[in-house]
């Protein structure tokens, strides 16, 4: 690699002694004494600039602008407020599976004579005010669904009202209702969080509904 005296600097004096070593290199630093040095400073400087350029581009591209919340190197931080869009059917399915499925069964078929069905039920597909009231306040007494009478059990109170057993938020109730109104062949309109809130505000705290009271709701 060296060997060629034309290419590599040879000091005037040997660098064997330590003072000579220090002297010779100090001279080399000041640009003297490096006789025959053919290294192209431009080439070395250019390599450093190239590395620096690469670094800048890489950092701009793959660091998520140094955001502590970005874990994917290809992502960029979001501008403005982060808005999550949640599908109420998916959310409702999760709550249905955790709670309602125990009585109304996985296909919304209920249990004959005990728990009314939801699939094809005129209550579920009927006016939103009725189903909202059933879930928020519960239902006590006899109810007639798809031509069959059910009176053996009670629908519990789910709404966020006084003495509620479950205290579900309006959003949770809206999601479950939207889910049961669009699943198993049901084709009713979705119910929004505001619909539930409006009913809760209008009715206030009260005990469980009965079939007769519900039928007054249009």
């Amino acid at each position: 690699m060296n060997g060629d005296p034309q290419r590599d600097p040879v000091p005037d004096q040997a660098v064997a002694a330590d003072e000579r070593l220090l002297e010779a290199h100090e001279r080399a630093l000041r640009g003297r004494g490096d006789r025959g040095d053919r290294h192209r400073p431009l080439a070395i400087g250019a390599s450093l600039i190239a590395l620096a350029l690469f670094s800048g581009v890489y950092l701009e591209r793959y660091t998520g602008h140094f955001s502590p919340l970005i874990f994917d190197e290809n992502a960029k931080p979001l501008k403005g407020e982060l808005v999550f869009k949640i599908d109420p059917v998916v959310l409702g399915q999760r709550y249905y599976g955790a709670e309602c499925v125990a009585c109304h069964r996985s296909q919304g078929e209920g249990s004959p004579g005990i728990y009314p069905p939801l699939a094809g039920s005129e209550w579920v597909n009927g006016p939103p005010g009725r189903v909202i009231r059933i879930v928020v306040y519960g239902l006590r007494g006899k109810v007639r669904v798809e031509g069959n009478d059910f009176s053996a059990s009670t629908m519990p109170v789910y709404g966020r009202i006084l003495n509620s057993g479950h205290n579900w938020s309006d959003r949770k109730i809206a999601a479950v209702l939207t889910y049961i109104r669009q699943e198993w062949g049901n084709k009713a309109d979705p119910i929004s969080e505001d619909d539930v809130a409006a009913v809760r505000k209008a009715v206030g705290n009260r005990d469980a509904m009965s079939e007769d009271e519900l039928e007054l709701v249009k």
Binding site: N2, H39, L51, L59
Partner: peptide, 30 residues
């Protein structure tokens, strides 16, 4: 589970260190 910039800065650092290795090899090639 670390923010993306930590491995990215590491990559840039390793690449920049090539300059150091290059200079060391150039200086000590005798």
């Amino acid at each position: 589970p670390v923010p993306a910039w930590i491995p990215s800065v590491a990559a840039v650092s390793c690449v920049l260190l090539l300059f150091n290795a290059f200079v060391v090899a150039l200086n000590l090639r005798c």
